[in-house]
Design a protein around this nucleic acid. Structure first.
Lengths: 202, 202
DNA sequence: GGCACTTCTCAACAAGTGTTGAGTTATTCG
DNA sequence: CGAATAACTCAACACTTGTTGAGAAGTGCC
């Protein structure tokens, strides 16, 4: 009716956001806390304090703790790309490539690794995280196994479960032997086992 | 000073425990809840209701929620025996034996599987559980690798981490492909990979 | 019976949580 | 300027949690 198109986002009216975009600061603080302390141990008040913001503003921006967590947990496209490309290319060193993709995804920059860590830490206590991790294990590796039968899907799922177990043991449980070992040694040691599991030969 | 030896447990004096030994009922209810709902989601009040007992009595018996959890989480000797014996015998089918030992430990009777499940579910949020799972992964498989060098210990830890990952994916995350597969198929599929990881050959 | 001892009951506390609503301040448009 | 709009602040609510303390009730020993 007016001169403005209602389907377009309204022009920014009203008070402008504070220094350095508060919303971004909250999201960043939430990501770090959820990744480091888990869903249950992380409080809205703590996130607000970290971001230098009032707790009620966190709610105003994200609606609820669950919605904020869901936003944080969204797997960034760059991480998905890592897993997808690991399956492309020759099958010879497939195992090592997949192992490396996993390990690197969890040690990458914060914007990429923290959502994955938050998902892992939250999977036991939060419904969203549980579903997301389930789909991640079931479909991510499966993606490279299209049209190769049920056994191939099972083997891919098993490999994913194993790698998630290794990440968990290293970064959450803190098993000394895994913490002390560098990435390339892990790749060299685990790679062949995953390779054989995915290929199905002996 | 008296006619009673103070180093011996005092003879039972006072009011006798209620029907079916209340303490046992509480312990059983706690085990089931901690294993099924995890540490954080389990409340003293809920355990007390399940056991048909007043919440304050749970505290009187076990001191605190943490102590009750620690009691529940104690790995039963029969489960430890499972893992120990898996390493004895010929190295030929070592992989399959170890895999089977893990899978069976988590699907055994409640007194054996629930403490393990409680440990797994609590490892992210509870300090005791975290430490216990860490020691479990680090030392249980290590136990069969004595005196074979650091690489053997690393390989054993990696295998344990992988198997814990598979149990977690199947029984906590609920990955469809793993839930739908029977135990022997899993043993046959994973066994060779674990075998190769433990042996270190290719 | 009287005493010591244990089990059990009841009600409450202190702390922390997510969440809400009203009110204040800043910014842009007419 | 003044109205509209958004960002921000403050204080409180409703609820759940682990935990506590005082007392009632049962049971064996003198």
């Amino acid at each position: 009716m007016s001169s403005q198109n209602p389907s377009m986002p309204r022009a920014r009216i009203g008070r402008r956001p504070g220094a350095e975009s508060t919303r971004q600061a909250v999201l960043q603080a939430a990501r770090a806390r959820f990744a480091g302390d888990g869903f249950a141990a992380t409080t809205i008040r703590r996130i607000a304090t970290d971001a230098g913001v009032d707790p009620s503003q966190v709610m105003q921006f994200f609606g609820s703790k669950d919605e904020l967590f869901a936003t944080v947990m969204a797997i960034p496209p760059s991480a998905l790309h890592r897993f997808d490309t690991a399956f492309e290319g020759p099958g010879e060193h497939l195992g090592e490539r997949v192992v490396r993709a996993y390990l690197e995804a969890w040690e990458g920059p914060a914007e990429e690794s923290e959502p994955l860590m938050a998902m892992l830490r939250g999977a036991i206590v939060n419904q969203h995280a549980n579903t997301q991790l389930r789909d991640f294990i079931q479909s991510r590796l499966t993606h490279g196994m299209h049209g190769r039968g049920d056994e191939a899907i099972l083997r891919a799922g098993l490999a994913a479960a194993m790698l998630v177990g290794i990440i968990t043991s290293q970064r959450i449980i803190g098993v000394p032997a895994l913490v002390a070992t560098d990435k390339e040694t892990l790749v060299r040691t685990i790679g062949p086992a995953i390779q054989q599991l995915l290929a199905g030969d002996r």
